[in-house]
Design a protein around this nucleic acid. Structure first.
Length: 569
RNA sequence: CGGGGCGUGGCGCAGCUUGGUAGCGCGUCUGAUUUGGGAUCAGAAGGCCGCAGGUUCAAAUCCUGUCGCCCCGACCA
Protein backbone atom coordinates (compact mmCIF):
# COMPACT_ATOMS: atom_id res chain seq x y z
CA UNK A 1 0.00 0.00 0.00
CA UNK A 2 1.21 3.47 -0.80
CA UNK A 3 1.34 5.94 2.06
CA UNK A 4 -0.06 8.54 -0.28
CA UNK A 5 -3.22 6.46 -0.59
CA UNK A 6 -3.75 5.11 2.91
CA UNK A 7 -6.51 6.84 4.84
CA UNK A 8 -4.52 7.38 7.95
CA UNK A 9 -4.96 10.92 9.19
CA UNK A 10 -2.23 11.52 11.77
CA UNK A 11 -2.26 14.43 14.18
CA UNK A 12 0.67 16.35 15.50
CA UNK A 13 -1.06 17.47 18.61
CA UNK A 14 -2.78 15.41 21.24
CA UNK A 15 -6.54 15.84 21.21
CA UNK A 16 -7.45 17.25 24.59
CA UNK A 17 -10.11 14.66 25.34
CA UNK A 18 -7.66 11.77 25.38
CA UNK A 19 -6.45 10.90 28.84
CA UNK A 20 -4.55 7.67 28.50
CA UNK A 21 -1.73 6.73 26.16
CA UNK A 22 -3.63 4.22 24.05
CA UNK A 23 -6.42 6.69 23.40
CA UNK A 24 -3.99 9.45 22.51
CA UNK A 25 -1.85 7.36 20.22
CA UNK A 26 -4.75 5.66 18.47
CA UNK A 27 -6.25 9.07 17.76
CA UNK A 28 -2.98 10.68 16.76
CA UNK A 29 -1.93 7.74 14.62
CA UNK A 30 -5.14 7.96 12.62
CA UNK A 31 -6.47 4.63 13.86
CA UNK A 32 -9.74 5.70 15.41
CA UNK A 33 -12.12 8.62 15.55
CA UNK A 34 -14.81 9.26 18.06
CA UNK A 35 -18.34 9.14 16.75
CA UNK A 36 -20.10 9.71 20.06
CA UNK A 37 -19.27 9.34 23.73
CA UNK A 38 -17.81 5.86 24.15
CA UNK A 39 -18.51 5.04 20.49
CA UNK A 40 -15.67 4.92 17.99
CA UNK A 41 -15.12 4.42 14.29
CA UNK A 42 -12.20 2.25 13.34
CA UNK A 43 -10.21 3.62 10.40
CA UNK A 44 -8.30 1.31 8.04
CA UNK A 45 -5.20 0.74 10.15
CA UNK A 46 -7.20 -0.02 13.27
CA UNK A 47 -9.49 -2.34 11.38
CA UNK A 48 -6.49 -4.28 10.12
CA UNK A 49 -5.29 -4.69 13.71
CA UNK A 50 -8.74 -5.78 14.84
CA UNK A 51 -8.97 -8.31 12.05
CA UNK A 52 -5.64 -9.79 13.06
CA UNK A 53 -6.74 -10.07 16.66
CA UNK A 54 -10.04 -11.59 15.60
CA UNK A 55 -8.31 -14.08 13.34
CA UNK A 56 -6.03 -15.30 16.08
CA UNK A 57 -8.99 -15.59 18.41
CA UNK A 58 -11.02 -17.35 15.73
CA UNK A 59 -8.30 -19.85 14.92
CA UNK A 60 -7.85 -20.77 18.56
CA UNK A 61 -11.57 -21.04 19.20
CA UNK A 62 -11.89 -23.35 16.20
CA UNK A 63 -8.89 -25.38 17.31
CA UNK A 64 -10.57 -25.85 20.71
CA UNK A 65 -13.69 -27.16 19.04
CA UNK A 66 -15.71 -23.97 18.91
CA UNK A 67 -18.13 -23.20 16.10
CA UNK A 68 -18.69 -19.62 15.10
CA UNK A 69 -22.18 -18.16 14.92
CA UNK A 70 -23.56 -14.70 14.40
CA UNK A 71 -26.36 -13.53 16.64
CA UNK A 72 -28.60 -10.47 16.68
CA UNK A 73 -27.51 -7.29 18.32
CA UNK A 74 -31.14 -6.30 18.72
CA UNK A 75 -32.67 -8.62 21.27
CA UNK A 76 -36.29 -8.80 22.36
CA UNK A 77 -37.11 -7.88 25.94
CA UNK A 78 -38.96 -11.18 26.46
CA UNK A 79 -35.72 -13.17 26.47
CA UNK A 80 -34.28 -10.93 29.13
CA UNK A 81 -37.44 -11.02 31.15
CA UNK A 82 -37.26 -14.80 31.05
CA UNK A 83 -33.79 -14.84 32.57
CA UNK A 84 -34.69 -12.08 34.98
CA UNK A 85 -31.95 -9.84 33.74
CA UNK A 86 -34.27 -7.28 32.11
CA UNK A 87 -34.54 -5.82 35.60
CA UNK A 88 -31.19 -6.90 37.05
CA UNK A 89 -29.13 -5.35 34.28
CA UNK A 90 -30.64 -1.97 35.00
CA UNK A 91 -29.51 1.22 33.34
CA UNK A 92 -26.44 -0.50 32.01
CA UNK A 93 -28.50 -1.89 29.16
CA UNK A 94 -29.29 0.09 26.05
CA UNK A 95 -33.02 -0.21 25.50
CA UNK A 96 -35.18 0.73 22.56
CA UNK A 97 -38.70 0.34 21.24
CA UNK A 98 -39.96 -0.44 17.80
CA UNK A 99 -42.91 1.25 16.10
CA UNK A 100 -45.31 -1.17 17.75
CA UNK A 101 -43.94 -0.19 21.12
CA UNK A 102 -42.26 -3.54 21.68
CA UNK A 103 -39.18 -3.37 23.89
CA UNK A 104 -35.74 -4.44 22.78
CA UNK A 105 -32.21 -4.20 24.06
CA UNK A 106 -28.92 -3.79 22.30
CA UNK A 107 -27.19 -6.93 23.46
CA UNK A 108 -24.62 -6.40 26.22
CA UNK A 109 -23.98 -10.14 26.08
CA UNK A 110 -25.67 -13.14 24.53
CA UNK A 111 -26.41 -15.79 27.17
CA UNK A 112 -30.16 -15.40 26.70
CA UNK A 113 -30.07 -15.84 22.94
CA UNK A 114 -27.63 -18.69 22.83
CA UNK A 115 -29.44 -20.53 25.60
CA UNK A 116 -32.71 -20.13 23.73
CA UNK A 117 -31.20 -21.43 20.51
CA UNK A 118 -29.67 -24.45 22.19
CA UNK A 119 -32.83 -25.13 24.16
CA UNK A 120 -34.88 -25.21 20.98
CA UNK A 121 -32.68 -27.59 19.06
CA UNK A 122 -30.51 -29.63 21.40
CA UNK A 123 -32.33 -32.33 23.31
CA UNK A 124 -29.88 -35.16 23.85
CA UNK A 125 -26.67 -35.75 25.74
CA UNK A 126 -25.42 -37.22 22.46
CA UNK A 127 -25.21 -33.68 21.06
CA UNK A 128 -22.97 -32.47 23.90
CA UNK A 129 -20.59 -30.89 24.48
CA UNK A 130 -21.41 -27.93 22.28
CA UNK A 131 -19.16 -24.90 22.04
CA UNK A 132 -20.57 -21.89 20.17
CA UNK A 133 -18.96 -18.52 19.82
CA UNK A 134 -19.42 -15.14 18.22
CA UNK A 135 -17.32 -12.06 17.58
CA UNK A 136 -19.54 -9.00 17.47
CA UNK A 137 -20.32 -5.55 18.70
CA UNK A 138 -21.79 -5.49 22.16
CA UNK A 139 -23.34 -2.63 24.02
CA UNK A 140 -23.26 -1.29 27.51
CA UNK A 141 -24.63 2.08 28.41
CA UNK A 142 -21.73 2.81 30.70
CA UNK A 143 -22.37 5.38 33.38
CA UNK A 144 -19.23 7.09 32.31
CA UNK A 145 -17.45 5.92 29.19
CA UNK A 146 -13.78 6.78 29.40
CA UNK A 147 -10.26 5.87 28.40
CA UNK A 148 -11.09 5.65 24.70
CA UNK A 149 -11.51 2.05 23.63
CA UNK A 150 -10.89 0.81 27.14
CA UNK A 151 -14.37 1.52 28.38
CA UNK A 152 -16.64 2.20 25.47
CA UNK A 153 -20.38 1.89 25.19
CA UNK A 154 -19.98 -0.07 21.98
CA UNK A 155 -17.18 -2.59 21.84
CA UNK A 156 -16.14 -5.71 19.98
CA UNK A 157 -16.21 -8.85 21.99
CA UNK A 158 -15.66 -12.52 21.43
CA UNK A 159 -17.86 -14.71 23.59
CA UNK A 160 -17.90 -18.48 23.57
CA UNK A 161 -20.64 -20.39 25.38
CA UNK A 162 -20.15 -24.00 26.35
CA UNK A 163 -22.91 -26.54 26.96
CA UNK A 164 -22.09 -29.75 28.76
CA UNK A 165 -23.99 -32.61 30.25
CA UNK A 166 -22.23 -32.63 33.62
CA UNK A 167 -19.66 -30.91 35.80
CA UNK A 168 -16.85 -33.04 34.45
CA UNK A 169 -17.73 -31.90 30.94
CA UNK A 170 -17.77 -28.28 32.07
CA UNK A 171 -14.38 -28.74 33.71
CA UNK A 172 -13.03 -30.00 30.42
CA UNK A 173 -14.57 -27.18 28.38
CA UNK A 174 -13.25 -24.67 30.87
CA UNK A 175 -9.80 -26.17 30.66
CA UNK A 176 -9.86 -26.09 26.88
CA UNK A 177 -10.75 -22.43 26.92
CA UNK A 178 -8.13 -21.68 29.51
CA UNK A 179 -5.53 -23.26 27.24
CA UNK A 180 -6.90 -21.55 24.14
CA UNK A 181 -6.74 -18.18 25.87
CA UNK A 182 -3.13 -18.72 26.84
CA UNK A 183 -2.31 -19.53 23.25
CA UNK A 184 -4.15 -16.46 22.03
CA UNK A 185 -2.28 -14.00 24.20
CA UNK A 186 1.01 -15.74 23.57
CA UNK A 187 0.41 -15.61 19.84
CA UNK A 188 -0.34 -11.92 20.05
CA UNK A 189 2.99 -11.53 21.77
CA UNK A 190 1.50 -9.72 24.75
CA UNK A 191 2.84 -9.98 28.27
CA UNK A 192 -0.08 -11.22 30.32
CA UNK A 193 -1.03 -13.02 33.46
CA UNK A 194 -3.89 -15.36 34.31
CA UNK A 195 -5.43 -14.56 37.64
CA UNK A 196 -8.12 -15.96 39.88
CA UNK A 197 -11.10 -13.67 39.78
CA UNK A 198 -14.34 -12.94 41.46
CA UNK A 199 -17.16 -14.11 39.23
CA UNK A 200 -19.32 -11.11 40.12
CA UNK A 201 -22.86 -10.73 38.91
CA UNK A 202 -22.51 -13.28 36.14
CA UNK A 203 -22.32 -15.94 38.77
CA UNK A 204 -20.74 -19.34 38.90
CA UNK A 205 -18.03 -20.71 41.11
CA UNK A 206 -14.79 -20.63 39.17
CA UNK A 207 -13.44 -17.78 37.19
CA UNK A 208 -10.17 -16.56 35.76
CA UNK A 209 -9.19 -13.28 34.22
CA UNK A 210 -6.55 -12.74 31.59
CA UNK A 211 -4.67 -9.56 32.27
CA UNK A 212 -2.41 -7.73 29.86
CA UNK A 213 0.28 -6.24 32.05
CA UNK A 214 0.56 -2.47 31.86
CA UNK A 215 1.33 0.11 34.49
CA UNK A 216 -1.76 2.05 33.46
CA UNK A 217 -4.03 -0.96 34.05
CA UNK A 218 -7.16 -0.53 36.10
CA UNK A 219 -6.84 -3.87 37.83
CA UNK A 220 -4.45 -4.59 40.64
CA UNK A 221 -2.96 -8.06 40.44
CA UNK A 222 -1.43 -9.89 43.37
CA UNK A 223 1.02 -12.61 42.43
CA UNK A 224 3.63 -14.91 43.82
CA UNK A 225 6.95 -15.48 42.10
CA UNK A 226 7.70 -18.54 44.16
CA UNK A 227 4.67 -20.52 43.04
CA UNK A 228 2.13 -19.74 40.31
CA UNK A 229 -0.47 -18.06 42.46
CA UNK A 230 -1.95 -14.93 40.93
CA UNK A 231 -5.24 -13.23 41.65
CA UNK A 232 -7.14 -10.07 41.10
CA UNK A 233 -6.89 -8.03 44.29
CA UNK A 234 -10.69 -8.32 44.45
CA UNK A 235 -10.26 -12.00 45.04
CA UNK A 236 -6.75 -12.49 46.46
CA UNK A 237 -6.88 -14.26 49.80
CA UNK A 238 -5.08 -12.80 52.75
CA UNK A 239 -3.42 -14.89 55.41
CA UNK A 240 -4.06 -14.14 59.05
CA UNK A 241 -0.89 -12.79 60.55
CA UNK A 242 0.21 -15.58 62.87
CA UNK A 243 3.61 -14.01 63.28
CA UNK A 244 2.11 -11.07 65.07
CA UNK A 245 0.46 -13.38 67.55
CA UNK A 246 3.74 -14.97 68.51
CA UNK A 247 5.07 -11.62 69.63
CA UNK A 248 2.04 -10.94 71.75
CA UNK A 249 2.40 -9.04 74.93
CA UNK A 250 0.48 -8.76 78.16
CA UNK A 251 -3.16 -7.82 77.69
CA UNK A 252 -3.92 -4.60 79.41
CA UNK A 253 -7.14 -3.31 80.88
CA UNK A 254 -9.57 -1.55 78.57
CA UNK A 255 -9.50 2.19 78.95
CA UNK A 256 -11.54 5.05 77.57
CA UNK A 257 -9.75 8.24 76.72
CA UNK A 258 -10.93 11.67 75.70
CA UNK A 259 -9.96 12.52 72.14
CA UNK A 260 -11.70 15.73 71.12
CA UNK A 261 -11.42 16.60 67.47
CA UNK A 262 -9.88 13.29 66.50
CA UNK A 263 -11.66 12.01 63.42
CA UNK A 264 -9.39 9.96 61.20
CA UNK A 265 -6.90 7.18 61.63
CA UNK A 266 -4.18 9.73 60.94
CA UNK A 267 -5.49 11.92 63.73
CA UNK A 268 -5.34 9.01 66.14
CA UNK A 269 -1.77 8.22 65.13
CA UNK A 270 -0.68 11.78 65.72
CA UNK A 271 -2.65 12.52 68.84
CA UNK A 272 -1.74 9.30 70.63
CA UNK A 273 1.66 8.85 68.99
CA UNK A 274 0.98 5.25 68.07
CA UNK A 275 1.76 3.22 64.97
CA UNK A 276 -1.04 2.81 62.46
CA UNK A 277 -0.92 -0.97 62.94
CA UNK A 278 -2.23 -0.59 66.47
CA UNK A 279 -5.43 1.08 65.34
CA UNK A 280 -8.59 -0.62 64.18
CA UNK A 281 -11.07 1.28 62.06
CA UNK A 282 -14.75 0.57 61.71
CA UNK A 283 -16.58 1.14 58.44
CA UNK A 284 -20.36 1.23 58.31
CA UNK A 285 -22.19 -0.14 55.29
CA UNK A 286 -25.80 -0.30 54.25
CA UNK A 287 -26.38 -3.92 53.25
CA UNK A 288 -29.80 -4.89 51.89
CA UNK A 289 -31.65 -2.87 54.47
CA UNK A 290 -29.48 -3.03 57.54
CA UNK A 291 -26.38 -1.33 58.80
CA UNK A 292 -23.31 -3.48 59.27
CA UNK A 293 -19.84 -2.63 60.46
CA UNK A 294 -16.52 -3.93 59.23
CA UNK A 295 -13.52 -3.72 61.51
CA UNK A 296 -10.09 -3.72 59.88
CA UNK A 297 -6.61 -2.60 60.81
CA UNK A 298 -6.01 1.13 60.44
CA UNK A 299 -3.76 0.90 57.41
CA UNK A 300 -5.81 -1.70 55.53
CA UNK A 301 -8.32 -1.27 52.74
CA UNK A 302 -11.66 -2.99 53.04
CA UNK A 303 -12.36 -5.31 50.14
CA UNK A 304 -16.01 -4.68 49.36
CA UNK A 305 -16.31 -7.73 47.18
CA UNK A 306 -15.16 -10.06 49.92
CA UNK A 307 -17.43 -8.30 52.36
CA UNK A 308 -20.37 -8.58 50.02
CA UNK A 309 -19.73 -12.27 49.49
CA UNK A 310 -19.62 -12.89 53.23
CA UNK A 311 -22.79 -10.93 53.85
CA UNK A 312 -24.47 -12.62 50.87
CA UNK A 313 -26.22 -9.39 50.14
CA UNK A 314 -27.16 -7.78 46.84
CA UNK A 315 -26.63 -4.18 47.69
CA UNK A 316 -23.69 -2.93 49.68
CA UNK A 317 -22.95 0.75 49.92
CA UNK A 318 -20.87 2.67 52.37
CA UNK A 319 -22.99 4.76 54.71
CA UNK A 320 -22.45 8.47 54.56
CA UNK A 321 -21.84 10.66 57.53
CA UNK A 322 -25.38 11.93 57.67
CA UNK A 323 -26.86 8.43 57.78
CA UNK A 324 -24.48 7.38 60.52
CA UNK A 325 -25.30 10.42 62.58
CA UNK A 326 -29.04 9.89 62.17
CA UNK A 327 -29.10 6.19 62.84
CA UNK A 328 -26.32 5.72 65.36
CA UNK A 329 -26.16 9.18 66.82
CA UNK A 330 -22.40 9.41 66.58
CA UNK A 331 -19.96 10.80 64.12
CA UNK A 332 -17.75 8.81 61.83
CA UNK A 333 -14.58 9.44 63.77
CA UNK A 334 -15.74 7.63 66.88
CA UNK A 335 -17.11 4.39 65.48
CA UNK A 336 -16.03 1.17 67.09
CA UNK A 337 -17.07 -2.45 67.53
CA UNK A 338 -17.71 -2.34 71.27
CA UNK A 339 -21.31 -1.78 72.25
CA UNK A 340 -22.18 -1.22 68.63
CA UNK A 341 -25.81 -0.99 67.51
CA UNK A 342 -24.92 -2.76 64.27
CA UNK A 343 -23.63 -6.21 63.44
CA UNK A 344 -19.86 -6.30 63.56
CA UNK A 345 -17.72 -8.21 61.10
CA UNK A 346 -14.04 -8.38 61.93
CA UNK A 347 -11.14 -8.95 59.62
CA UNK A 348 -9.14 -12.01 60.63
CA UNK A 349 -6.18 -9.80 61.39
CA UNK A 350 -8.04 -8.14 64.25
CA UNK A 351 -7.89 -11.38 66.17
CA UNK A 352 -4.13 -11.10 66.30
CA UNK A 353 -3.98 -7.50 67.39
CA UNK A 354 -3.33 -6.88 71.07
CA UNK A 355 -4.20 -3.79 73.02
CA UNK A 356 -5.39 -1.90 70.01
CA UNK A 357 -7.19 1.37 69.65
CA UNK A 358 -10.62 2.06 68.24
CA UNK A 359 -13.52 4.48 68.44
CA UNK A 360 -15.67 4.32 71.57
CA UNK A 361 -19.04 4.78 69.84
CA UNK A 362 -19.22 8.00 71.75
CA UNK A 363 -18.30 11.34 70.26
CA UNK A 364 -14.88 12.53 71.27
CA UNK A 365 -13.77 9.28 72.85
CA UNK A 366 -11.57 6.37 71.86
CA UNK A 367 -10.81 3.10 73.58
CA UNK A 368 -7.30 1.83 74.12
CA UNK A 369 -6.07 -1.63 75.05
CA UNK A 370 -8.89 -3.24 73.15
CA UNK A 371 -8.73 -6.98 72.61
CA UNK A 372 -11.16 -8.95 70.53
CA UNK A 373 -13.03 -11.80 72.28
CA UNK A 374 -12.47 -10.19 75.65
CA UNK A 375 -14.02 -6.84 74.74
CA UNK A 376 -16.34 -7.75 71.93
CA UNK A 377 -17.41 -10.72 69.89
CA UNK A 378 -17.93 -10.11 66.20
CA UNK A 379 -20.70 -11.71 64.17
CA UNK A 380 -18.04 -13.29 61.96
CA UNK A 381 -14.30 -13.24 61.62
CA UNK A 382 -13.28 -13.30 58.00
CA UNK A 383 -10.87 -12.16 55.37
CA UNK A 384 -12.13 -8.67 54.62
CA UNK A 385 -9.17 -6.67 53.46
CA UNK A 386 -7.33 -6.12 50.22
CA UNK A 387 -4.10 -8.02 49.84
CA UNK A 388 -1.00 -5.87 49.49
CA UNK A 389 2.60 -6.24 48.40
CA UNK A 390 4.50 -8.14 51.06
CA UNK A 391 1.61 -10.27 52.27
CA UNK A 392 2.29 -13.97 52.39
CA UNK A 393 1.14 -16.17 49.53
CA UNK A 394 -1.95 -18.24 50.38
CA UNK A 395 -0.44 -21.19 48.53
CA UNK A 396 3.24 -21.24 49.44
CA UNK A 397 3.58 -18.43 52.02
CA UNK A 398 6.30 -16.64 50.08
CA UNK A 399 6.05 -12.89 49.78
CA UNK A 400 3.44 -11.58 47.35
CA UNK A 401 4.06 -8.80 44.89
CA UNK A 402 1.64 -6.63 42.95
CA UNK A 403 1.42 -5.42 39.40
CA UNK A 404 -1.21 -3.65 37.33
CA UNK A 405 -3.06 -5.17 34.42
CA UNK A 406 -5.83 -4.62 31.92
CA UNK A 407 -8.54 -7.23 31.90
CA UNK A 408 -8.89 -8.51 28.34
CA UNK A 409 -10.31 -11.97 28.91
CA UNK A 410 -12.58 -13.49 31.49
CA UNK A 411 -13.75 -17.08 31.72
CA UNK A 412 -16.59 -18.28 33.92
CA UNK A 413 -18.22 -21.48 34.92
CA UNK A 414 -21.89 -20.61 34.84
CA UNK A 415 -23.29 -23.98 35.81
CA UNK A 416 -27.05 -24.03 35.49
CA UNK A 417 -27.66 -20.38 36.24
CA UNK A 418 -29.24 -19.67 32.85
CA UNK A 419 -30.32 -23.12 31.78
CA UNK A 420 -32.49 -23.51 34.88
CA UNK A 421 -34.37 -20.23 34.70
CA UNK A 422 -34.75 -20.51 30.96
CA UNK A 423 -35.68 -24.20 31.20
CA UNK A 424 -33.00 -25.34 28.79
CA UNK A 425 -32.54 -29.05 29.27
CA UNK A 426 -31.63 -32.30 27.59
CA UNK A 427 -32.18 -35.99 28.24
CA UNK A 428 -29.21 -37.85 29.69
CA UNK A 429 -28.36 -41.48 29.01
CA UNK A 430 -30.90 -42.59 31.60
CA UNK A 431 -33.65 -40.62 29.97
CA UNK A 432 -33.53 -38.08 32.79
CA UNK A 433 -34.16 -34.42 32.03
CA UNK A 434 -31.18 -32.29 33.05
CA UNK A 435 -30.35 -28.60 32.66
CA UNK A 436 -27.34 -27.82 30.53
CA UNK A 437 -24.16 -27.08 32.43
CA UNK A 438 -22.86 -23.89 30.92
CA UNK A 439 -19.73 -21.81 30.78
CA UNK A 440 -18.98 -18.49 29.14
CA UNK A 441 -15.69 -17.15 27.95
CA UNK A 442 -15.12 -13.60 26.76
CA UNK A 443 -12.33 -11.65 25.15
CA UNK A 444 -12.59 -7.92 24.63
CA UNK A 445 -11.27 -7.57 21.10
CA UNK A 446 -11.29 -3.79 20.80
CA UNK A 447 -10.03 -3.52 24.33
CA UNK A 448 -7.18 -5.87 23.52
CA UNK A 449 -6.08 -3.50 20.78
CA UNK A 450 -5.98 -0.63 23.27
CA UNK A 451 -4.24 -2.80 25.86
CA UNK A 452 -1.57 -3.76 23.33
CA UNK A 453 -0.83 -0.06 22.86
CA UNK A 454 -0.78 0.60 26.58
CA UNK A 455 1.78 -2.13 26.96
CA UNK A 456 3.83 -1.39 23.85
CA UNK A 457 4.66 2.23 23.14
CA UNK A 458 7.37 4.81 23.63
CA UNK A 459 7.58 8.60 23.46
CA UNK A 460 7.37 8.47 19.67
CA UNK A 461 4.31 6.33 19.34
CA UNK A 462 2.98 2.81 19.16
CA UNK A 463 5.20 -0.28 18.94
CA UNK A 464 2.83 -2.93 17.58
CA UNK A 465 3.65 -6.52 18.42
CA UNK A 466 4.35 -8.05 15.02
CA UNK A 467 1.43 -10.54 15.03
CA UNK A 468 -1.14 -7.78 15.30
CA UNK A 469 0.61 -4.90 13.50
CA UNK A 470 -1.51 -3.29 10.78
CA UNK A 471 1.41 -3.69 8.36
CA UNK A 472 4.69 -5.45 8.97
CA UNK A 473 7.13 -3.36 6.98
CA UNK A 474 7.38 0.25 5.86
CA UNK A 475 9.81 1.34 3.16
CA UNK A 476 10.93 4.93 3.44
CA UNK A 477 12.83 6.47 0.53
CA UNK A 478 14.37 9.59 2.02
CA UNK A 479 13.89 11.68 -1.10
CA UNK A 480 11.11 10.82 -3.52
CA UNK A 481 12.69 12.91 -6.25
CA UNK A 482 15.79 10.72 -6.45
CA UNK A 483 15.01 8.05 -8.99
CA UNK A 484 17.58 5.57 -7.73
CA UNK A 485 15.98 5.66 -4.27
CA UNK A 486 12.52 5.28 -5.70
CA UNK A 487 13.47 2.50 -8.06
CA UNK A 488 15.02 0.52 -5.25
CA UNK A 489 12.05 1.27 -3.00
CA UNK A 490 9.60 -0.05 -5.55
CA UNK A 491 11.74 -3.07 -6.27
CA UNK A 492 11.95 -4.01 -2.60
CA UNK A 493 8.25 -3.29 -2.20
CA UNK A 494 7.30 -5.77 -4.90
CA UNK A 495 9.74 -8.39 -3.69
CA UNK A 496 8.32 -8.22 -0.15
CA UNK A 497 4.75 -8.29 -1.42
CA UNK A 498 5.73 -11.34 -3.45
CA UNK A 499 6.56 -13.10 -0.20
CA UNK A 500 3.06 -12.38 1.06
CA UNK A 501 4.19 -9.70 3.48
CA UNK A 502 2.23 -6.60 4.39
CA UNK A 503 4.16 -3.59 3.22
CA UNK A 504 3.75 0.15 3.06
CA UNK A 505 5.85 2.28 0.76
CA UNK A 506 6.06 5.91 1.83
CA UNK A 507 5.91 7.53 -1.58
CA UNK A 508 4.85 10.91 -0.27
CA UNK A 509 6.90 13.91 -1.28
CA UNK A 510 7.56 14.77 2.33
CA UNK A 511 10.73 15.49 4.19
CA UNK A 512 12.39 12.47 5.76
CA UNK A 513 11.62 13.69 9.25
CA UNK A 514 7.90 13.73 8.60
CA UNK A 515 7.98 10.18 7.27
CA UNK A 516 10.02 8.91 10.20
CA UNK A 517 7.67 10.55 12.68
CA UNK A 518 4.62 9.03 11.04
CA UNK A 519 6.23 5.60 10.80
CA UNK A 520 7.10 5.70 14.49
CA UNK A 521 3.70 7.02 15.49
CA UNK A 522 1.80 4.32 13.63
CA UNK A 523 4.12 1.69 15.04
CA UNK A 524 5.01 -0.38 11.96
CA UNK A 525 7.48 -2.97 13.30
CA UNK A 526 10.14 -2.90 10.57
CA UNK A 527 11.33 0.13 8.66
CA UNK A 528 13.62 0.07 5.65
CA UNK A 529 15.19 3.45 5.02
CA UNK A 530 16.65 4.13 1.60
CA UNK A 531 19.01 7.07 1.68
CA UNK A 532 22.01 8.37 -0.23
CA UNK A 533 24.65 7.50 2.36
CA UNK A 534 23.95 3.80 2.66
CA UNK A 535 23.04 3.54 -0.99
CA UNK A 536 26.60 4.40 -2.00
CA UNK A 537 27.71 1.18 -0.31
CA UNK A 538 24.80 -0.76 -1.83
CA UNK A 539 23.11 -0.92 1.52
CA UNK A 540 19.85 0.10 3.14
CA UNK A 541 19.04 0.80 6.75
CA UNK A 542 16.89 -1.54 8.82
CA UNK A 543 15.22 -0.16 11.90
CA UNK A 544 13.29 -2.35 14.28
CA UNK A 545 10.64 -0.20 15.94
CA UNK A 546 11.31 -1.80 19.33
CA UNK A 547 15.06 -1.19 19.18
CA UNK A 548 16.95 2.03 19.29
CA UNK A 549 19.70 1.31 16.81
CA UNK A 550 19.53 1.16 13.06
CA UNK A 551 21.56 -1.48 11.23
CA UNK A 552 22.93 -1.41 7.69
CA UNK A 553 22.01 -4.35 5.51
CA UNK A 554 23.28 -5.11 2.02
CA UNK A 555 20.58 -4.58 -0.59
CA UNK A 556 20.81 -8.15 -1.81
CA UNK A 557 20.18 -9.45 1.74
CA UNK A 558 17.45 -7.16 2.98
CA UNK A 559 14.45 -9.09 1.68
CA UNK A 560 15.70 -12.30 3.14
CA UNK A 561 16.53 -10.60 6.43
CA UNK A 562 13.04 -9.11 6.73
CA UNK A 563 11.49 -12.45 5.95
CA UNK A 564 13.67 -14.14 8.54
CA UNK A 565 12.63 -11.73 11.28
CA UNK A 566 8.94 -11.93 10.48
CA UNK A 567 8.91 -15.70 10.20
CA UNK A 568 9.56 -15.97 13.91
CA UNK A 569 6.08 -14.66 14.58
C1' C B 1 -26.89 10.66 39.38
C1' G B 2 -23.47 13.97 42.69
C1' G B 3 -19.01 17.33 42.35
C1' G B 4 -15.64 20.16 38.98
C1' G B 5 -14.32 22.00 34.07
C1' C B 6 -14.99 22.95 28.82
C1' G B 7 -17.70 23.89 23.90
C1' U B 8 -14.44 29.79 19.22
C1' G B 9 -11.92 26.94 11.29
C1' G B 10 -9.48 19.79 10.89
C1' C B 11 -6.10 19.85 15.82
C1' G B 12 -4.26 22.83 20.11
C1' C B 13 -5.66 27.41 22.14
C1' A B 14 -6.38 33.16 23.08
C1' G B 15 -10.42 36.69 23.13
C1' C B 16 -15.36 36.76 27.51
C1' U B 17 -13.93 39.98 33.68
C1' U B 18 -14.98 45.77 31.32
C1' G B 19 -20.48 44.06 24.89
C1' G B 20 -18.55 47.57 19.42
C1' U B 21 -16.34 44.47 12.23
C1' A B 22 -13.12 37.07 15.39
C1' G B 23 -7.35 36.12 16.42
C1' C B 24 -2.69 32.94 17.12
C1' G B 25 0.19 28.24 16.40
C1' C B 26 -0.20 23.64 13.82
C1' G B 27 -2.61 21.38 9.70
C1' U B 28 -4.90 22.24 4.43
C1' C B 29 -4.40 24.54 -0.79
C1' U B 30 -1.05 27.36 -4.74
C1' G B 31 3.93 28.74 -6.14
C1' A B 32 9.16 28.96 -5.26
C1' U B 33 13.46 27.36 -2.68
C1' U B 34 14.44 22.96 0.06
C1' U B 35 15.03 17.37 1.23
C1' G B 36 18.17 12.09 6.84
C1' G B 37 13.95 13.17 12.57
C1' G B 38 7.40 17.01 12.17
C1' A B 39 11.58 22.92 6.53
C1' U B 40 11.63 28.30 4.72
C1' C B 41 9.44 32.33 2.05
C1' A B 42 5.21 34.41 -0.54
C1' G B 43 0.10 33.97 -1.27
C1' A B 44 -4.85 31.66 -0.24
C1' A B 45 -9.06 28.99 1.51
C1' G B 46 -11.67 27.73 5.81
C1' G B 47 -15.54 29.86 11.64
C1' C B 48 -23.76 32.28 11.50
C1' C B 49 -18.02 31.52 18.29
C1' G B 50 -22.48 23.98 20.34
C1' C B 51 -27.92 25.00 19.91
C1' A B 52 -32.47 27.88 21.33
C1' G B 53 -34.47 31.92 23.62
C1' G B 54 -33.76 36.69 26.16
C1' U B 55 -31.36 41.68 27.51
C1' U B 56 -29.22 45.60 24.30
C1' C B 57 -28.75 50.42 19.18
C1' A B 58 -25.14 46.33 19.23
C1' A B 59 -23.75 39.67 22.06
C1' A B 60 -18.30 34.90 21.15
C1' U B 61 -18.61 38.26 25.46
C1' C B 62 -24.30 39.47 29.88
C1' C B 63 -28.92 36.29 31.45
C1' U B 64 -32.06 31.70 30.98
C1' G B 65 -32.71 27.04 29.02
C1' U B 66 -30.86 23.01 26.36
C1' C B 67 -27.41 19.58 23.99
C1' G B 68 -22.59 17.63 23.82
C1' C B 69 -17.65 16.66 25.68
C1' C B 70 -13.78 15.96 29.54
C1' C B 71 -12.17 15.00 34.71
C1' C B 72 -13.29 12.96 40.00
C1' G B 73 -16.98 9.44 42.48
C1' A B 74 -20.71 5.42 42.62
C1' C B 75 -20.77 1.06 38.25
C1' C B 76 -18.00 -2.23 35.11
C1' A B 77 -15.37 -6.34 30.47
Amino acid sequence: MKSSEIFNPTLREVPSEAEIVSHQLLLRGGFIRKTSGGVYSYLPLAFRVLKKIMNIVREEMDRAGGQEVLMPIIQPAELWQESGRWVVYGDEMFRLKDRHNRSFALGPTHEEIITTIVKQDVHSYRDLPLLLYQIQNKYRDEIRPRFGLMRGREFIMKDLYSFDMDEAGLDLSYKKMHEAYKRIFERMNLKYRVVEADSGAIGGNESHEFMVLASSGEAQIVYCDNCHYAANVEKAQCQAQEAVKAKSIVVKALEKIHTPGVRTVDDVMQKLAVPIESIAKTLIYWADGEYVGAVIRGDRELNEIKFKNILRCNELVIADEKQIREVLGISVGSLGPIGAKFKVYADQEIEFMDNFICGANEDGYHLINVNMSRDFVPETIADLRNAVKGDSCPVCSAELDTIRGIEVGHIFKLGTKYSEVMKASFLDNNGQEKPFIMGCYGIGVSRTMAAAVEQNHDENGIIWPIPIAPYQVIIVPVNTKKTEQMELAWSLYHQLLGLGLEVIIDDRDERAGVKFKDADLTGIPLRITIGPKALQEDKVELKKRWEKETVLVAIENIVEEINRILKQY
